[in-house]
Design a protein around this nucleic acid. Sequence first.
DNA 1: TCAATCCGTATC
DNA 2: ATACGGATTGAC
Length: 686
Amino acid sequence: MSGPAPAARPARKRAQPSLEPAAARPVARVCVDVSLPHLDRPFDYLVPGHLDDQAQPGVRVRVRFAGQLVDGYLLQRADSSEHSGRLAYLEKVVSAEYVLHAEVAALARAVADRYAGTLADVLRLAVPPRHARAEKQVPPTLAAPAEPTVLAAPAEPLGPAAPAEPGRASGPGGWATYPAGAAYLRAVADGRAPRAVWTALPGEDWPARLAEAARAADASGRGALLLVADARDLDRLDAALTSALGAGRHTTLSAALGPQERYRHFLSAARRQVRVVAGTRAAAFAPVAELGLVVLWDDGDDLHAEPRAPYPHVREVLLTRAQLAGCAALLGGYARSAEAQQLVETGWAKDLTAAREVVRRYAPAVPPAGDDAQLARDPAAATARLPHVAFTAAREALAAGAPVLVQVPRRGYLPAVACAECRAPARCPACAGPLSLPSASAAAACRWCGRIATAYACPSCGGRRLRAAVVGARRTAEELGRAFPGAPVWTSGRDGVLAQLPAQPAVVVATPGAEPVAEGGYGAVLLLDTWALLTRADLRAGEETLRRWLAAAALARPASTGGRVVVVADGSLAVVQALLRWDPGWLAARELSERRELGFPPAARVASLTGVPDAVADLLAAVILPAGAELLGPVPAGEADERMLIRVPRTSGRALAAALHAAAGVRSARKAREPVRVQIDPLEFL
DNA sequence: TCAATCCGTATC
DNA sequence: ATACGGATTGAC
């Protein structure tokens, strides 16, 4: 304030215009945008009469909270408050737009509870930032069908009559190719809630199949929500949805759209102008009207794990959502995760897998791999990493006029430790965690429990020596250019992803996840540098390896038209066996039973606590762990941090999350300075 | 005995 | 950040 203060100030502090509470339901319950765990509950405010109309559940509001103006969401209106003190008035309604639908609020609460997080944190993931211009752009008058629209044509054809993808006449012919496929789609179209884990056939046009599933939900008068891992998959799905539903009947949501477009698309779903939404990660919370079906493609992809607190996984979000909405769920992929396998084994979901002979009909030939060492020493190989079998397969494919795909691992994997003899990943004898070599001279230590593995003996070959596993290189493209001088060599990876490829002789070197789709399929697919994958210091190494291999191998032609896959790896490994037999379900069942034995997710539930040692100890002192909880660690994590793992039986997962949330609340109420990161079932526990 | 002050806690 | 309640202190 400038100038001399008037000596005689009126007693009243603020010159507030006298506010009157709204006549009916004057109390607004608000979730304030504050991520402190001890404030993770609604706070009551009074709705001033002039905001009565706008202050509806689901709108953004601004309120005075602890002296500051903060954003929040109005969760509900009520007649009265439990709060004993005086209630403050809402400061303003930011926008009357209904952005937080009641079902999404309930979902967000459930996700926060599952992940020991706060509702405010989950809502930051769930609702995209407001863009005022976008709100004006989508005229509310466009508000399309609130009533289920009757399609011009019924949801059929659901079966093999679906048109085959151009240039892929040999591909599987639709949902009817899977024993329970047509029945599944019919159930969705009939408004029921079937749940399935779908193993896509090699060469499957999965975007078309997912679009058919969305159309079935749409035909039942309900909405559908389809999630994929990245922008490239989303583009393909988007195109398939346009051809299955017609233009303007669906929308897409992804961060790649940019703030304004993203919010505009979000609004067209929130305003119920469309009821089919496809997107990446954050779209799992999209407001979809009358949700009838949730779909997740390739649930094993790391990108489905949210990197921001409370680190929810899309699979868990969608399954929770299906549960809350009582709607259908479909988890599809060429591969199968241990989590998906568990859904099948517990009977939660039905197994949608084609019969063996059908799989054989569409699968490329995968010649049994020889001994790894012998392959690598092959004198005919153009390089040490391109053994003879692979070289021949590529040359023959090119000669037949077909493109060749070469998959190489991405750089930057953590150096893991493997048996020097048989190259099996070395695991801790005490807790089965991965071992690491801090230095060349030091003994191997467990990354989970910190114990030193003295006198290590390999469980598979008895070998006693350990070695660091090599990390894949990226000179492959140049090497191949020399090996096949006649064919153009392309690369597709981090910097520059190729989406498609014509049916011409060419060599494509791609990192996992960036493999272009080839018109007519690849004549040969080479999987190189495989043990950078196989020796990953990761519980999920086997599953992840097969997932990447199948994603590439599924792009090959069937064996009957010359399609071949060469994997440069030891043929006795389970992962290689699963590829040879094209049986991801078999590997997933093995992985799951192994995790059951070792007591790791998804068979058990694990929480990781990361922070400076004092902070982690502080949180552990405050937490009241459920019975049967087991502590592993601490192990060093990064510069100054350490990590503790807490393991509980699956049935205690909810209790563990609640206990950790409560303990975090005790710390935040005390204004504890040093943060502790709490993650439930983290994908990587290093 | 009471008012000024300090400290911890809740935050509507 | 700020407001409040309860405890603490110091002067009468």
